[in-house]
């Protein structure tokens, strides 16, 4: 849990203490989300910040309410490790900019409550808590989770969506001017956005997923800092790019090219921040390769042949379920047995 196990070297004692502890890892990953958050605020206005804050409040609320108590019986013993905060931020960034705040709060609550704590807390969960929260929201409020708004810039920075402050249990009630995402335009209108727009991020989509450029930079920084096993995101991206390009060669007017596949939708965000969750992805290097390739294949299948325009969330959740199996198969054998 504390290290990502990417450099498994057999050595004899004495050992130095590990550089990374759980709170520290969480802190650094949270730090890595800051540029993404800033990009989200730039493109979708200050509302983005409120949405992420609401998701964090929900996640930390659940951790406080249902999590372990300290030895003296006070609540919130596990709040300090920062996982709840990180889950909240990560989930908040996957939500569309038009979502009412109370839904983001519910998503955080479900993500930590059902996604993590019922499994026994940190490390016990099979599925990525942030994605469990989002999957619940997607199933519960499909309309709100698929209503997208065009991105803006400096002029709309302080624009606040009225729908965001809908009273709990009410719909946003505002008929926002909706825009289709790059992927749904690909799927339903066979129309491909130029990849330069996707790289910049001034397209419709979830808060944190639009700016491919910033996500790539964050990913590289996290890789350099060894915050995750680089094999997971790299295999995902390579698989998607190769498969996407093959389909593009077969039928270029029906299927987009590799760059579009890579930079559209939640692929980069999912690959960098979601699939790399140390609790729900395999630790062995070979396992990481299988895991990443599986996600890549599923993403391409769902995007090009499924009923939904985007499949990164379900692809990661499905592969999360196979992680224990992959671990068993790829466990390095003890020498001599």
């Amino acid at each position: 849990m504390t290290t990502t196990g990417s450099d498994l070297v057999l050595q004899s004692p004495p050992f130095d203490s590990a550089r990374l502890t759980t709170p520290k890892l969480m802190q650094e990953v949270t730090l890595a989300t800051v540029p993404v958050l800033l990009a989200a605020v730039w493109f979708f206005g200050i509302t983005a910040l409120f949405i992420v804050a609401a998701a964090c409040a929900g996640a930390m609320g659940a951790e406080w309410l249902f999590g372990q108590r300290t030895a003296t019986g006070r609540r919130g013993a596990t709040l300090g490790d920062g996982t709840a905060l990180l889950t909240g931020v990560l989930m908040g960034l996957t939500l569309p900019p038009t979502i009412p705040l109370w839904m983001a709060f519910v998503g955080g609550l479900v993500g930590i409550g059902i996604g993590k704590l019922v499994w026994g807390g940190l490390g016990g969960n099979i599925f990525n808590p942030a994605l469990v929260g989002r999957a619940f929201l997607q199933a519960a409020f499909p309309t709100a989770l698929t209503t997208w708004r065009a991105s803006g810039g400096a002029d709309t920075l302080f624009h606040v969506d009225k729908g965001a402050f809908a009273i709990p249990f009410a719909s946003s009630g505002v008929d926002a001017v909706t825009t289709a995402t790059a992927l749904s335009r690909m799927k339903f209108d066979a129309e491909f956005l130029p990849w330069l727009d996707l790289l910049r991020g001034n397209v419709a989509g979830s808060l944190g997923e639009t700016s491919a450029g910033i996500l790539i930079l964050c990913g590289i920084w996290m890789g350099v800092r060894r915050l995750y096993d680089w094999r997971v995101p790299v295999t995902i991206l390579v698989t998607v790019a190769v498969l996407g390009q093959i389909f593009h060669f077969v039928s270029p007017e029906k299927y987009p090219d590799a760059l579009f596949m890579l930079f559209s939708g939640g692929l980069l965000y999912g690959a960098v921040f979601m699939a790399t969750d140390p609790a729900t992805s395999p630790t062995a290097p070979r396992g990481a390769l299988i895991f990443g390739a599986g996600i890549g294949v599923l993403v391409v299948l769902i995007r090009l042949f499924g009923g939904l325009p985007e499949g990164v969330m379900y692809a990661i959740l499905l592969m999360n379920a196979t992680t224990p199996l992959i671990e068993r198969v790829t466990q390095p054998r003890i020498f001599g047995r």
């Binding site: 009412p100 619940f136 499909p142 709100a144 249990f169 009410a170």
Partner: peptide, 14 residues
């Protein structure tokens, strides 16, 4: 119970 603005939790009826 809640008036016309209520946002139903679709997952609950599935």
């Amino acid at each position: 119970l809640f008036g016309p603005n209520y946002e139903p939790w679709v997952v609950m009826i599935l």
